[in-house]
Design a protein around this nucleic acid. Structure first.
Length: 287
DNA sequence: CGCCAGGGACGAA
DNA sequence: TTCGTCCATGGC
């Protein structure tokens, strides 16, 4: 893999196991949109970018080499050997089919605060709506970022939300989740919840800490652990995951989280993403 | 355990 | 058009 600066962006050659569609459309993030040319535009770590990819290269428009090395390489998880991961978890035809289907998924390493707030908003909610709410939150409280002739917005920091009220959040369309978001922001502001501290803890301890936040249950906690704190042993289970686990791996009434974590171990999070993307897309096509 | 919390898409009637 | 149901759930 080699990266170099070219045409207002960074071109990375020799990349395998990467697809923008799979990565940005597998439900782990809410700030990326597909353009007509199959590239995706979005914001991460207060930087806007447009990302396109073909069979063995990625082009990230809007950044320089330094930003690639410091931010985007890690954000897109490009330093990890996904071939090895697939080999390890593919010991049956189900995982083989799932990994073939979502072959280009990468688990993004997202900012902790953004991930926490976004997934609280996601509970009992649909992706298109979550994206709208998050967008309005960024427009109202984030910083402007000029890019490609348009204005984008950073995800607001906890400091930027210091004076926001529950009513402000409700006005953005969060519904009954407004009070959860308000409480979570306060906990981050006081330092009671700290992403860097959580990252240092083992998965079980970090999960317990996250569950103390009003509005955070198992599902939201596991998503935050997996998508921002690199706790790859987590196996978030929603209705789709419950379905695909019962269709393939569970006979009776065993717990899907336990079965998944037992079966896939330290790579549970990757297995979860392949299974989720595969099963959810299949469900959509059918109807 | 069962219902409820906003609000909009979606399909059936 | 209208109505019921569903939706990356958690709290009470």
């Amino acid at each position: 893999m080699i990266a170099r600066q070219i045409n207002g962006g960074v071109l990375i050659d020799g990349v395998e196991h990467f697809s923008v569609k799979h990565t940005f459309d597998c439900g782990q993030c809410f700030r990326w949109d597909a353009l007509d040319d199959k590239s995706y535009v979005g914001v991460a770590f207060s930087q806007a970018a447009r990302i396109s990819a073909d069979d063995n290269s990625i082009f990230i428009k809007g950044i320089n080499l330094e930003q690639y090395e410091n931010v985007w390489k890690r954000y897109l998880d490009l330093g990890r050997d996904y071939g090895k991961i697939k080999n390890t978890i593919c010991y049956d035809s189900v995982m083989l089919e799932a990994t073939n289907y979502g072959w280009g998924i990468r688990i993004l390493r997202q900012e902790f605060f953004e991930t926490l707030i976004s997934f609280i908003i996601s509970q009992r909610n649909a992706i298109f709506r979550i994206k709208g709410i998050v967008k309005r939150l960024c427009e109202k409280f984030g910083n402007e970022i000029a890019f490609d002739g348009q204005i984008y917005y950073s995800f607001p920091s906890a400091q930027q939300l210091k004076n926001a009220t529950e009513a402000d959040y409700a006005a953005l369309g969060m519904g009954y989740r407004a009070k959860y978001v308000y409480e979570a922001v306060q906990k981050v502001l006081t330092g009671e919840i700290d992403g860097e501290e959580l990252e240092k803890m083992d998965t079980a301890t970090a999960r317990k800490e996250l569950l103390k936040i009003y509005g955070v249950g198992n599902k939201v906690a596991d998503c935050v652990l997996l998508f921002s704190l690199a706790k790859f042993g987590c196996f978030p289970v929603d209705v789709w995951m419950d379905r695909v686990m019962h269709e393939n791996y569970i006979d009776g009434k065993e717990n899907a989280i336990a079965v998944g974590e037992e079966r896939f171990g330290e790579y549970s999070g990757f297995a979860q993403q392949y299974l989720f993307y595969w099963r959810r897309d299949k469900g959509r096509i059918k109807k």
